[in-house]
Amino acid sequence: MKTFSEKLTTFIMSQGMTKKEFGEHIKSDRQAVLNYTNGRTPSIKFIYQILDKYPDFDLNYYLKDWIDSPQKLVKVDNFNSVHESSSNYKDQKEDILKEIKALNEKVLLLLEK
Score class of each variant (00 low, 15 high):
N60Q: 11
N38H: 09
Q92Y: 11
T10H: 00
S43R: 00
F4Q: 14
I50Q: 08
K53R: 14
I12E: 00
K72E: 12
S87E: 15
N35C: 04
Q15N: 04
M13L: 09
N38P: 07
F4I: 12
K75L: 15
K93L: 08
G16Q: 02
D91M: 10
R30W: 08
K113Q: 14
P42M: 05
I96Q: 09
Y89K: 04
L8V: 07
L51N: 05
K64L: 00
L59M: 10
K93T: 05
F4K: 13
L59K: 04
K98L: 12
Q92E: 12
T10S: 08
K64E: 06
E99G: 10
D29P: 06
S43N: 00
E112I: 01
D56R: 01
S86H: 01
Y54E: 00
Q71M: 13
F46D: 05
N38R: 11
N78Q: 11
T10V: 07
D91S: 12
L111H: 11
N35W: 00
I47S: 02
K7R: 15
L59A: 04
S43V: 00
S87M: 04
K98E: 08
S86I: 05
K106S: 09
T10D: 08
Q71D: 10
E99Y: 08
M13F: 01
E21I: 01
N78S: 15
K113P: 09
W66Y: 07
F11L: 03
N38C: 13
I50G: 04
L103H: 13
T9K: 12
Q15K: 14
K19H: 08
K27E: 15
L73I: 13
T41L: 02
V82S: 12
T9L: 13
I26M: 14
E99M: 13
K7M: 11
T9F: 05
R40C: 03
S28H: 07
D77M: 05
L73G: 12
S5P: 07
M17D: 04
F11C: 01
N35M: 03
E84Q: 05
G16Y: 01
K106D: 11
E21K: 09
K75V: 15
L109S: 04
S28M: 12
S5V: 07
V82L: 15
L34C: 06
Y61L: 03
